[in-house]
Design a protein around this nucleic acid. Sequence first.
DNA 1: AGAAGTGCCCGTCTACTCCC
DNA 2: GGGGAGTAGACGGGCACTTC
Length: 445
Amino acid sequence: MITCTAELSTFYDRRTSHSVQLAAFGQGGWFVQVWRGAAVLACEEIGNMAGQVSVTAIFEDMPAQDTTSFPEPAVTEGGDCVVCGDKGSGFHYGVFSCEGCKGFFRRTVTKGYVKACKSGSKCNMDMYTRRKCPECRLRSCRAAGMRSDCLLTKAQCRSKFLYRKSQAPTSDHPVSPTNQEVPIQPPTNQSRAADVHQQQNQISNFSNQSEISDSPSSSAQTGPEEMSLSQLNDSNATNLLDEIMSSFMDFGSENPVLTRTDSTGSDDMLSFLALLANDTQSIDENDLDPSIGLFDELTPTTPVQSDSIYEHAENLLSLQNGKANVGANVSASTEGQASEKSSTGSSTSDVPAESVLKATGTMQANSKREKQARFVAHMGIVVEKTVEFVKTIHRFQDLCLEDQIEVIKASFFDCCMMKVPVVLANFDSGVHVLQRILQAGKSSF
DNA sequence: AGAAGTGCCCGTCTACTCCC
DNA sequence: GGGGAGTAGACGGGCACTTC
Ligand SMILES: [Zn+2]
Ligand SMILES: [Zn+2]
């Protein structure tokens, strides 16, 4: 039996321009699917995946309509399911459909693959034959206009679960001291993510950005003097952390998880923050300043209303560098506090994340930017722990610095159960290390 | 026999409308 | 105009049932 237990992770091979998805199945086994018609990379642990086709491949075959707007939803005259003709129960994922097709679409997209059609993907779909061929049923769903981005992501499901858990009565299950003061944000229930097609574009964009990047990480991997992470001393490690943080921030502004917005304008940053709040619980309590609550005053009734996600990311980056970005539309009180923060002159280029954390703990917790500063500080610790964990992985030290950073970044996002593209200079060894990380588990550090 | 897939039902959440 | 109550729509999860 093969059970998908892990989030798909996307990798990008710079040399061959192929995007690759890896997913862990059960205790071992890797299902590797190469986009854009490239060959399937068969790792030795891969189970026999013959007879199955990935949802991604089908969706790429049948690109969705313009996802930036919401066209008139498909509906039949008699209120029948657009996919199979059964009695429709309402609009599901953008299409008037029955409960069966709704559940089928949700399960299949979540699962990530279906049994391949044996009749050339041309089976008829009605309420009697719909069970015979899942691939054609999925294609029918897609053709009817069903949108996978209407599903909650795993990250959102997880944060939703955590939110409900935090709201549940705690009489017989008292909460731990670490999460007692951490209200978790509810996820946006109807988030509209960028679809698969858009994600591919973003992967390409990210790749191009990396190609033309003149960042230290890019130049560091050229030549025989390239340095492995294990050889870095503490001061260099701080710079590396800074590099990773910057890399993360730059990437965050392009990341579909961070940039997706729903039709009502709320953003998924809240979901991400909720995830991060949970992930920080796995960190040694000694690493955290107990006086700092990551989500003080951020209750579900007072969500962060970011002006735009780009400004959000920009602010995070500015605060990380100790330079508060004071916009024209910021209140006077916030400006003052931001300037106070700026006047401390602290910078992650000079001090480790813990110092930033302590510094931010001295600030009053009543401005959005200060909360963001604490978010960044906590994130820095998570990144540091990620680095510690990844350094223990076999063959990690053989990677060039650029790939080490990419691997760390991938591991960090994977820890947050996010699906991210990863650009690797040395593809084979990088993928090997990433496999080891995923095998070792997300919560090993 | 048992794993995998299916579809019905229900709880939950959000947006919307109505009323005070 | 603002806030609370009620309602509809759409989501995921649970579970009994069917299929393989
Ligand atoms: Zn149907
Ligand atoms: Zn078929």
